[in-house]
Design a protein around this nucleic acid. Structure first.
Length: 349
DNA sequence: TATGCGTGGCA
DNA sequence: TTGCCAAGCAT
């Protein structure tokens, strides 16, 4: 029925020999699989490794995750990006405690009900942790299969992904679902990668690959062009009084939600406007000095920042700012890397 | 269905 | 330097 049947045994044999030694492949438990899969969403393996080990030390089980203070959780996630993943983990952990007695549910459908778990992650947990014959189609799998079949469909089209899930579901080997799903992703992460030409001469599927035969593999998959980022001007303040630095928490929704930040306002302000803006924070500026420009690129927006160091008097009573010893930044405050340029400047002062 | 959501590595 | 993009999900 399916043309994919022939890939199963070669992939399993290749994976057996060539699987990378990754932290989450040791002592496999549903919890470890879950955490690693969330961390790996849109994130490179090399970036995840250190975070995973530290996270497991700090929050070794569903219960500890369900009750962790959000600030501590975000600190553990600091630098990984897509911070809603961390908040969704905690929400899901609380649901798992309430509804499932602290054990992750064992079916794709139940997993899909948990925040942060979509079709890919549900399939990955179901197959890798529980051995269920469920597909787990991510970017690697789409790349491998479009090359294998010389398929020039736009993989941004959801129908393409559904079709791949259907084809795979038909050939997932009973009892080896986890290894099979992992093997396709592993091939896509190593031999059949996204950057530069695939290393087809090492590929266990070469003799089956139409993209290789037709010389098109390196041009696949086809992806629609992304729309350009918008540019946002921001003015960032390094506000100090005595030896203290002002930070504040970002809103609970939107970009960098719930993270801490250096106070900042929209637009590029000159020195007069800087003084005005600082007064609106309820502060009386004593000295101001420009800190230069910095740029930070997000997926969908680009911050062009201008920094100012402003020394102020004792603040009037005003909500919103926290005055902290900057030495505590490192240990206690989850700060996105967008502000790194100005924090580095601070350290040098 | 399209868009918002981070970061760092690499060509 | 710039652009691309990596084991996606929520809305």
């Amino acid at each position: 029925m399916s043309r994919l049947e022939p890939i199963v045994e070669p992939l399993l044999a290749w994976y057996e020999k060539n699987a990378r030694d990754l932290p989450w492949r040791h002592g496999v438990t549903p919890y470890r699989v879950w955490i690693s899969e969330i961390m790996l969403q849109q994130t490179r393996v090399e970036a995840v490794k250190g975070y995973f080990e530290r996270f497991m030390q700090a929050l070794p089980d569903v219960e500890s995750l369900s009750s962790v203070e959000e600030k501590r959780l975000l600190k553990l996630w600091e630098g990984l990006g897509y911070y809603s993943r961390a908040r969704n983990l905690k929400r899901a952990a609380a649901l798992i405690m309430e509804r499932y007695g602290g054990a992750l549910p064992r079916s794709r459908d139940e997993l899909l009900k948990l925040p942060g778990i979509g079709p890919y992650t549900a399939g990955a947990i179901a197959s890798i942790a529980y051995g269920l014959a469920e597909p787990a189609v991510d970017g690697n799998v789409l790349r491998v299969l479009t090359r294998l079949e010389d398929d020039h469909s736009d993989i941004a089209d959801a129908a393409v992904k559904r079709a791949v899930e259907k084809k795979l579901r038909a050939v997932i080997p009973q009892g080896r679902a986890g290894a099979f799903n992992s093997s396709i992703m592993e091939l896509g992460a190593t031999i059949c990668g996204p950057n530069g030409p695939p290393e087809c001469l090492c590929c266990p599927l070469r003799s089956l690959c139409i993209g290789y035969a037709n010389g098109t593999a390196g041009d696949l998959p086809v992806k629609a062009a992304k729309k350009p980022r918008r540019i946002e001007e921001r003015t960032v303040f390094v506000l100090t009084r005595d030896a203290l630095l002002a930070v504040r928490r970002r809103p609970a929704r939107g970009l960098l939600a719930g993270m801490w930040e250096l106070p900042s306002v929209e637009g590029r302000l000159d020195d007069a406007k800087v003084i005005e803006a600082v007064r609106e924070f309820g502060l009386a500026p004593l000295r101001i000095a420009p800190l230069g420009d910095a740029k930070h690129i997000f997926t969908h927006v680009e911050w062009h920042m201008t920094g100012w160091r402003v020394t102020v008097e004792e603040p009037l009573e005003k909500e919103g700012l926290e005055w902290i010893d900057p030495r505590r930044l490192q240990g206690d405050y989850p700060l996105p890397s967008a502000f790194r340029a100005y924090l580095t400047l601070w350290e040098q002062l």
